[in-house]
Simulated assay, not measured.
Amino acid sequence: MRVAIAGAGAVGRSIARELIDNGHQVLLIDKNPASIKPERVPDAEWLLADSCELSSLEEASLDRCDVVIAATGDDKANLVTSLLAKTEFAVPRTVGRVNHPDNEWLFTEAWGVDVNVSTPRIMSALVEEAVSVGDLVRLFTFRQGNANLVEMTLPADSPYVGKPAGLIPFPENCSLVTILRDGQVYVPDAEQPVEAGDELLLVVATDLEDELEELLAPEEHKDR
């Protein structure tokens, strides 16, 4: 897979290293000469250019890329890069980095963003995930499917503690992805009982989150 990353700062370089380690071809683009440091990621291609300029993206052969990641520290630049990649070069998949939470609403398909990654949201979700029991924590949003990856630590008073996962009447547009227990990852099995303290990872439609929360932890949410 060929991936272009706009923004060759610490974030862009880290993404590049991870992708290269996984066998992908990576092009790093940055308009700041001080950010062009090929020795930091020697296996990547490097291009000194402005990703907001159409001519720069043509030079980068964006039409040959499978994914474009807009990872600069400027939300406006990330939006313009994503839009040009999608509309002018028909890149199949775009990922936009959200730097300021107030701008997250802009990072949608209307601006050419297939997936947005909000650092503030991720950090707050990780904090919630670490301390919350009986509350759904949204970890990731799938824009194209109008669904979210969510997590819940099952409380001891859940009506499904000790019952097989297959007997939990999940909403139609909801799927249990995995169960995390005692440092182990368990593939959901219809016969496997769930236990208090299990971390359940689920994919659920956005408008069904409240219903799912009340299903799994009714005592925590009966007065809401």
Rank of each mutant, 00 (worst) to 15 (best):
L27S: 03
S55R: 15
S14E: 11
I20R: 05
G23R: 09
E39W: 09
I29T: 06
A10W: 03
K37G: 04
A16D: 09
L57K: 06
V41N: 00
L27Y: 02
L48P: 01
V26R: 08
P42E: 13
H24N: 03
S51R: 05
K37V: 09
L48I: 03
A49R: 04
S51Q: 08
S56N: 05
S35V: 09
S56H: 08
A16R: 11
A4M: 01
A10L: 06
P38F: 11
N22D: 14
N22A: 12
R17K: 14
A49M: 05
E18C: 13
D50K: 07
R17C: 12
L19I: 00
A34F: 14
S14L: 10
S14T: 13
R17H: 15
E18T: 15
V11H: 05
A4Y: 01
L27K: 05
A8I: 04
G23M: 09
S35Y: 14
A4G: 02
I15V: 06
L54M: 10
G9D: 01
A16Q: 13
E39S: 10
L48M: 02
I36H: 07
G7K: 03
P33N: 02
A4R: 01
A34Y: 14
A34M: 15
P33D: 08
N22R: 15
E53V: 13
L27Q: 07
A34R: 15
S35E: 14
L19T: 00
L54E: 11
A8Q: 02
E45N: 10
G12W: 11
R13Q: 07
G12F: 08
R40N: 15
A49I: 04
E39C: 07
R40M: 14
I36V: 05
S14A: 11
D43Q: 15
I36W: 07
L27C: 02
E18I: 11
A8T: 01
I36M: 06
K37P: 02
L54P: 07
A6V: 12
P38W: 11
D43S: 15
L27T: 02
G9T: 00
P42F: 13
I20F: 01
N22H: 12
L47F: 05
L19A: 02
D43Y: 15
Q25C: 12
E39R: 12
L48C: 01
